[in-house]
Design a protein around this nucleic acid. Sequence first.
RNA 1: CGGGGCGUGGCUCAGCCUGGUAGAGCGCUCGGUUCGGGACCGAGAGGUCGGAGGUUCGAAUCCUCUCGCCCCGACCA
Length: 584
Amino acid sequence: MRWSHYFIPTLREDPADAEVISHRLLLRAGYIRQLGAGIYSLLPLGWRVAQRAMKVVREEMDAIGGQEFFLPAIHPAEVWKESGRWEVMGETMFRLRDRKGADMCLGMTHEEVFTTIARHEIRSYKQLPQVWYQIQTKFRDEERPKSGLMRLRQFIMKDAYSFDVDKAGLDRAFEDQREAYKKIFDRCGIKYHIVEASSGAMGGSESNEFMARTSAGEDFIAVCDACGYAGNLEKATSRIAQVEDEAGPAAPEAFPTPGVRTIEDLTTFPGGAAADRQVKTLVYLATDGATREQYAVLALLRGDHQLHEVKLADSLGASEVRPAHPEEIRDLLGASAGSLGGVGARDRATAAKQKLRIVADSALEGRRAMTTGANKDEHHLRGVDVERDIRPDSWADLRTVSAGEACPNCEGGTLDVFKAMEIGHIFKLGTKYSESMGARVLTQEGKEAPIVMGSYGIGVERILSAAVEQSHDADGIVWPRAIAPFDVVVTVTNVKQQEITDAGERLYAELRRAGLEVLLDDRDERAGVKFKDADLIGIPFRLTVGKKVTDGKVELFDRATKQSEDVSIDGVVALVQTRALSGL
RNA sequence: CGGGGCGUGGCUCAGCCUGGUAGAGCGCUCGGUUCGGGACCGAGAGGUCGGAGGUUCGAAUCCUCUCGCCCCGACCA
């Protein structure tokens, strides 16, 4: 391509609306333009990068036997009603009506459509396994689109689905995808961690997220520095030192605690207790995932621990949990936050004619002689034995892991906690969709069984933003070679000097003949402007054609290292070819 | 959805509080000088001040409504 006629609208100044680095650079370097909140146009450079990323994705999907489809982006409501997700997806789904008044929606994902195909066409175990995928535009009316390409309302996704007769087949398919994903992100030059994650609205038993570390990320993940264990904070656990309690009294005893509102207050209150010897009591309202019934929950944690709401929701099978309002707490327990406790809470809830569930964090197991609120304002109880006096309905991991805690998976490792963005997610769906939508096959034994499914997604735009987040400097983007829009830019320092222009043209032609994607900067601009622009848009290599052509030399500049070297024109094509294409 | 902020030439922003002929820098066009890290001089083009209504002799500026965008939180495959 000739820069003089190629559309690369670079901006000298930072766009005002862009906050995160990838958004700023993609905008400034002329890769994207915004159309609306969470809706972006990919300009020629941006589309090139997206296409190269998709090429990598296709190659790795095909390598594990994936078959590419192209499914509709607009769906009749029926299939979503069958799976039950017409309601579940709520406001996030873009909905519309056709001229006959029939409900339609824009596809957020394609489990329903692929399952529809599978149930019509797949009858026998002999037709399995299948691995189907597509690269499609998805629509999600996110409550808060943000950060450029990171959270979009319209985006491109590679979504793959596996269909197997049994769990073992699913395990294999899942493992294949996992390996393929590793190759994809490795090739795209993105550093990532594979974490265990909560399956959320997708359902299913197991899921792994591929997370790219960046301060612009929306999730926190915990990663072990020794063994590589990694978990989304929604799922991550850690090992903490056990606290040994002395024997407590035969029954809890109440004592007045005027002015005490917080765990912290009680640690310094005379006759109080250290935070790790207190039981923190949080009141939540949960909505059951299946029945939609709402009920109250007491979440019990050690005083110095933080609740993770997703863990709470997961442990309850709730679709939604929220902290109870002050009035709701008082109605339920007869006291205000700061004096709440699990002892006798069940009786109070019964008296208030409310359903209550008590969930305790596993760090509380076996604990006794604890201190907690008395459900009477400014009073607490000491000598509480959690099991004996509170009798929780269930025990679960509710605690938020924090940095510096010990790895649950190895000896001696320490967890680090940092922000990351989700770039891929693989799920073992099991039979959730095949059962609700009736996709069944006859097994070898002649029995009918639901197809066992998996679902595997990669956000294409997120590959771009993750790459830019992880690979840039003060001058601009530094593209990983596999997804750079061009392999090399040939910068003609002065188009008014014939011998320089001629040399540039010759190199441009030869490099292209050598199979490289080449951008020729033939603009009538000063050299400085061209260098700045080339750095900004982030092409991995720059060949500067200038005065030295008279000595048969050009300059090869490596964008990543910023090293440049004079090389002879004769050998330069082969040199660039090996450097630009090696290891891709 | 709660909180905060912002809409003024293509871009970044000033002007608004205290109403009175719409500004700057960058970019763009033309001419000249320059020419290896975002040049300089000169001459130009370009704006219904997001939209609607209102107050006023007069509104970018004050009031009301509305649309859009950004950020924080909640939420989230």
